[in-house]
Amino acid sequence: MLTKDQVEHVALLARLALDEEEKERYTTQLAKILEYAAILNELDTADVPPTAHVLSLQNVFREDHVGPHLPPDAVVGNAPDKEDGFFKVPRII
């Protein structure tokens, strides 16, 4: 069963701030979804390989050439804050 502590831990990992009400709500909703997902356990998949890719592709490469770079204005054009061509962020702790 999913607990509120777990929800808080997951929120930390996902870097999401949650208030009390959200924590409660996500605990209930995620528990319900996970409960629903538990029907997968009806299946014995011990000998079934996982499918991460539906494609049978392998060894897709590009050659080692340098291509065009973004012009400096475009690089920081969407930045919420910038300084001198750098992206600017609040202090790191």
């Binding site: 770079h69 001198d84 750098f86 992206f87």
Partner: peptide, 13 residues
């Protein structure tokens, strides 16, 4: 990607 690996260079170029 095709961006250069050259050391140094003006920031974000």
């Amino acid at each position: 990607c095709h961006s250069s690996t050259a050391f140094g260079g003006t920031q974000n170029t």
